[in-house]
């Protein structure tokens, strides 16, 4: 069983990375939300697996929270927003999807390139794990910068956060993993459930931040 721990953790990390990468290619919000949900579920599995491997109760807790909030509550909320605002059509991207996918590959390359020279003697988390989570973080950021739609930016941000949690649960013995992931979730919940979307709804007809951009055009 022991020799399975790391390969399986890697496998889960790899699945998360693929989800994050697939997010880049999606034009429709509904598909993005589904992908995100799947990513969160995989993360839950990874957290449980690490909790099992490290015999750490906090990691189970983290996994539980992830499951409840990220894999269930947030996607439900997001779907409701999509439905209410009727933005099921494809969202506009700031750059061609193909180009953003090439960039995504490049980012994974950068992540690997940066992590490779680091030496991690006494650490059980290997370079690959770090490279995977760094890639997920960077890909999430890329989603945020290539989508004009606020909701897809939020999804990108959530994916970034998944990368962070993936890194956190892989850190052996790291204290406060549960607390930090809760704190992060507060931020995310604030982002999604919070008043923003409704306020933006009040002032802009859709969630496209182009409306906001037009305000910014006025000089000050």
């Amino acid at each position: 069983m022991n020799n399975l721990i790391y390969p399986f953790a890697h496998l889960l990390g790899g699945v998360i990375l693929i989800c994050a990468f697939a997010l880049l290619s999606q034009r429709r919000l509904a598909a993005m939300i589904t992908l995100y949900q799947f990513e969160a579920m995989t993360l839950t599995a990874a957290a449980f697996w690490q909790g099992y491997a490290q015999h750490e109760l906090a990691l189970y807790l983290t996994g539980g929270i992830t499951l409840i909030i990220k894999a269930i509550a947030l996607p439900v909320g997001l779907r409701r927003i999509v439905k209410n605002f009727n933005i099921t059509r494809a969202v506009e991207t700031a750059m061609p999807v193909g180009l953003s996918m090439i960039l995504g590959v490049g980012l994974i390359g950068v992540a690997v390139w940066v992590v490779l020279p680091t030496t991690m003697n006494a650490v059980t988390l290997t370079r690959e794990d770090l490279a995977i989570s760094l890639s997920v973080v960077l890909l999430g950021l890329l989603v945020m910068t290539t989508r004009r739609n606020a909701l897809s930016q939020v999804i990108g941000f959530l994916s970034t956060e998944n990368g962070l949690v993936l890194a956190a649960i892989g850190m052996p013995g790291m204290p406060f993993v549960a607390e930090l992931s809760v704190a992060l979730l507060v931020l995310m919940a604030f982002l999604v459930v919070g008043v923003f979307l409704f306020r933006i709804r009040e002032h802009f007809d859709n969630l496209d931040i182009a409306g906001i951009e037009s305000i910014e055009k006025q000089g000050r």
Binding site: L141, I209, E216, K217
Partner: peptide
């Protein structure tokens, strides 16, 4: 300065990369 939120985010991201 007139950059949009997304573009500002892109500055951060580009600088990070």
């Amino acid at each position: 300065r007139r950059a949009t939120i997304r573009q500002r985010l892109a500055f951060v991201f580009a600088a990070l990369v």
